[in-house]
Design a protein around this nucleic acid. Sequence first.
DNA 1: TTATTTTCTTGATATAAATCAATTTAATGT
DNA 2: ACATTAAATTGATTTATATCAAGAAAATAA
Lengths: 250, 250
Amino acid sequence: MLMHKFHLCIFAARLEKIMGKTENVHNCVDCANKADCFEHLSKSELMEVSKSKVSILYKKGEIIRKQGTFVSSILIVKKGIAKVYKEFDHAENVSIVDFRKSGQLIGLSDIYNASIVQYSVSALNDCEVCIIDIRLFEKLLNSNTGFAVDVIKSINNQTCGILDFHIQNNYKQLHGRIAHALLILSKHVFESDDFNIPFTRRDFAEFTNMSSMSAVRILKNFRDDHLIEMNNGLIRILDNEKLEKIFKNG
Amino acid sequence: MLMHKFHLCIFAARLEKIMGKTENVHNCVDCANKADCFEHLSKSELMEVSKSKVSILYKKGEIIRKQGTFVSSILIVKKGIAKVYKEFDHAENVSIVDFRKSGQLIGLSDIYNASIVQYSVSALNDCEVCIIDIRLFEKLLNSNTGFAVDVIKSINNQTCGILDFHIQNNYKQLHGRIAHALLILSKHVFESDDFNIPFTRRDFAEFTNMSSMSAVRILKNFRDDHLIEMNNGLIRILDNEKLEKIFKNG
DNA sequence: TTATTTTCTTGATATAAATCAATTTAATGT
DNA sequence: ACATTAAATTGATTTATATCAAGAAAATAA
């Protein structure tokens, strides 16, 4: 039933694009979830974005963008949390690169760089995503310095954290890695000490580069030691300081 | 003796800056090792860079930029190869992030991002480095869209490769990692199948995140199997295909 | 040059983490 | 509500890699 409703939504959005409807339901000018860099666009530039963008709903687990396809757009997460991940060996192995939430951009690293999508993206929970033609995005970059500067800011902000996470991961052993992941999730992704989200043991494993059995064991350790609580999907951080300590000590 | 000469060089360059000398020996307009993004600057903009930049010589092993200090400049490698690395636990542990060579920029990821230097940089061999005030760099970004676009291009180009290397590293075991490192060094850093450079076993270990003993063992394996040759500092790749295979199979 | 420190090398041992295997629990589709 | 598939769990075993230790070689300083 829900599935059905969902497909209708996608269909409607796609139809809108196909039909060349010039007025979107959601107007970029008044959008509350605008990415930071769009603040520097003029009203007319925003109108141009409004006219050419589409907004799509993705159901939990759906693939939003597939590694290896041609780059054609920049995405902006409006609702939900998207998971950015790298596939290896024909998707047999996966490494989660980052998470993106409301107001955050996806695909910035493809601009003027690769014509091929470098990372797959899927919906961790139900997501609403705005899709902007990359040619429009690049046109705006070429005509608006304030915008370009803000895009540089966004890129640096994103990659700095990601690279750091993965480099640190290399240096830590399992307990430190899971502690790190929990801290990142609570402080930067969900921004709360408890979060109810379909974040599986496997996601933990793919985020921290370990086997899912190891992730299970360590999460169990943490639960036994009352550092966290885990009940049917809800994760709650009970002892931030101890997690920080475990993270720091490797 | 050489040391002495070197210190004089640095001193001269620093003196030049202090004295406010308006003509540098090396003029940015005619510089052959310009970073790509400088190609889009006008002659007057390049003259401005020329006037305010300094060119410094660093001896093999010297620290060019130290993690944790305040960001004040963007660096351009003119000669030699610089090593960008992250320090952990008060520099007891180190992870090499990237290498930069002639025409490549250092510090792009700090622009409009962190006020604190994120990675240390040292000279792998003798280096000549141009130092540009970050305020001038940011001023140019704000006034020249072509320049901003080229900087985005450079940033994406750099970070894409770095992130990929480190994510893949997490997934591979020792042989695969060393093979990967050798391929990166020969194809992208030194751009030759043999290179004579002070690249120690420890550098290999810090680049691929393993103990230096493991690096020694695996390099020995590779030498015994005639995949590489190593004699007093010279490294020569003998069998690219086999290395590729080892890299791919993990 | 000799002395001294650092890096390299190798074997033996310890340990962390993956893999294998088998069961339980939860999620999903019909 | 049932059947089916997928995810979580746990113990036993194996494997990869780090650590320890001690000597050789090389680089650097005196």
